[in-house]
Amino acid sequence: MLDAGAAIEVATKIGRRLADGAAERDAERVLPAEEVDLLTSSGLLAITVPAEHGGPDLPTSVVTEVFRLLAAGDPSIAQIPHSHFVYVNALRHRGTPAQQAFFFGEVLAGKRFGNAQSEVGTAHVREHRTTLTPAADGGWLLNGEKGYSTGALFADWIPVLAHLGVDGPMHVAWVERSAPGMTIVDDWDGMGQRTTASGTVRLAGVRVDDARITPYHLTFEGPQTYGAFAQVLHAALDAGIARAALSEAAAFVTSRSRPYPDAGVQRHADDPLVVHAFGQMEVQVRACEALLAEAARAVDRANADLTEESAGRASLAVAAARASTTQASVEVSSRLFEVAGTRSALDGLNLHRHWRNARTHTLHDPAAWKVQHLGRHALDGVFPPNHGQV
């Protein structure tokens, strides 16, 4: 069982290992089954299991840094267990004692959770059509189709967000990967985050027992950090991308870039314009990393004393982190080419994967709305709305 220091150390080592093959996996879209197994065997996927169930129960600040370190190595692989951690958190808050004992035991035994939450073609991201309907002989039948199901292809259990009854309240149906009627399709073809396998999950008459259903709608009937926790992990992915882009830009500039003649230097890295550009990018990345760390601490503070105000302040801190990490990851991964020169644009180098990953992942939730929430609070003291995206 990993403590905080060990978790950071393990994540650092695995992140470096993931970086070695990241460009090749992206270019050839090699799904990282072995690498996901490595994450599982390392113990990192169990670090948020509550102490009363035999887990390390590590705080959000540690989990966030683990995600950032993994994402600096390969953000596609880092994104795969995102929903695993989110649904471990959901069980903590809404699972019955029996459900918690069973599923936390599964996590400690090395089982992985995926996700089947978002739907394609609905009016907006929080509209769902997937439904649990009563089965004639007891239990429920689950029918629907999900998209962007990151982690499902590698999961043992897939939490499915669905109405309990036609147009009923939202619940989570916990479905085994091998359940009859469930089909997982590897049809994700995004320009970035190419190896997350964020494809389609089809559900046709999947049987679900009452013991495998947890309420989702109740999560937002009072103060909560469920949304802030999920969002801060997304921010950590983007911070990792920003740091990786800056590090690879520096490695390229100091070893392969040629100086511009007007600079009058022998080494491109000694061009004062290049040095200044790297200083600006370093400031930008350090700033987003600092906001990320503070956001994670704000979530921990809210968890220790959960009120409307503490939850609201956590959401604001996370909104600031998401806005900052979005900007840093997209801008630094683009500016990489400005400082590295023409040769860096060669397709075979795959340096553009950093921008593709940043641009794809930052579309997950609009950063502009994070800024809106911050601005409204600055003007009128209004906290963000109480839902899972802030």
Rank of each mutant, 00 (worst) to 15 (best):
Leu2Val: 04
Leu2Gln: 06
Ala6Gln: 11
Ala7Phe: 03
Val10Lys: 12
Gly15Thr: 08
Arg17Asp: 14
Leu18Tyr: 06
Ala23Glu: 06
Glu24Pro: 03
Arg25Thr: 11
Asp26Asn: 12
Ala27Pro: 03
Leu31Thr: 01
Glu35Ser: 09
Ala46Val: 07
Ile47His: 03
Ile47Glu: 07
Val49His: 00
Val49Thr: 00
Ala51Trp: 07
Pro56Asp: 03
Pro56Arg: 01
Pro59Gln: 12
Pro59Met: 15
Thr60Gln: 09
Thr60Asp: 12
Ala71Glu: 10
Ala72Thr: 10
Ser76Asn: 09
Gln79Tyr: 15
Gln79Phe: 14
Ile80Tyr: 02
Ile80Glu: 01
Pro81Asp: 05
His84Arg: 01
Phe85Ser: 03
Val86Leu: 11
Arg92Gly: 07
Arg92Glu: 01
His93Cys: 15
Arg94Ala: 15
Gly95Trp: 10
Thr96Val: 13
Phe102Gln: 13
Lys111Leu: 10
His124Ile: 14
His128Thr: 15
Thr131Gln: 04
Pro134Thr: 15
Gly139Phe: 11
Gly139Gln: 11
Trp140Leu: 04
Leu141Ala: 05
Leu142Lys: 04
Leu142Pro: 04
Gly147Met: 02
Gly147Thr: 06
Tyr148Met: 05
Tyr148Ile: 09
Tyr148Cys: 03
Ala155Thr: 05
Leu164Ser: 00
Val166Tyr: 13
Val166Thr: 14
Val172His: 05
Val172Asp: 02
Pro180Arg: 08
Gly181Cys: 02
Gly181Glu: 08
Val185Tyr: 06
Asp186Lys: 02
Asp187His: 04
Asp187Tyr: 04
Trp188Leu: 08
Gly190Lys: 04
Ala197Tyr: 01
Val206Ile: 05
Val206Leu: 00
Asp209Pro: 04
Pro223Ser: 09
Ala230Lys: 03
Gln231Phe: 00
Val232Met: 09
Ala244Arg: 02
Ala249Tyr: 12
Ala250Pro: 08
Ser255Asp: 11
Arg258Ser: 15
Pro259Arg: 02
Pro261Cys: 06
Arg267Cys: 12
Val275Trp: 11
Gln284Asp: 03
Val285Asn: 07
Ala293Pro: 00
Glu294Thr: 15
Ala295Thr: 04
Ala295Asp: 02
Ala296Trp: 06
Asp300Asn: 05
Leu306Met: 08
Leu306Tyr: 07
Thr307Gly: 09
Ser310Lys: 15
Ala311Asp: 00
Leu316Arg: 06
Ala317Phe: 10
Ala317Ser: 09
Val318Leu: 10
Val318Gly: 08
Arg322Lys: 11
Ala323Gln: 08
Ala323Lys: 08
Ala323Tyr: 14
Ser329Glu: 05
Ala340Cys: 14
Ser344Pro: 10
Leu346Lys: 00
Asp347Ala: 13
Asn350Ala: 04
Ala358Asn: 08
His361Glu: 15
Thr362Gly: 02
Thr362Tyr: 03
Leu363Phe: 09
Ala368Ile: 10
Trp369Asp: 07
Lys370Ile: 09
Val371Glu: 00
Val371Lys: 06
Gln372Ser: 11
Gly375Asp: 00
Arg376Ser: 01
His377Glu: 07
Leu379Phe: 07
Gly381Cys: 02
Val382Arg: 03
Asn386Ala: 14
His387Glu: 12
Gln389Pro: 02
Val390Tyr: 15
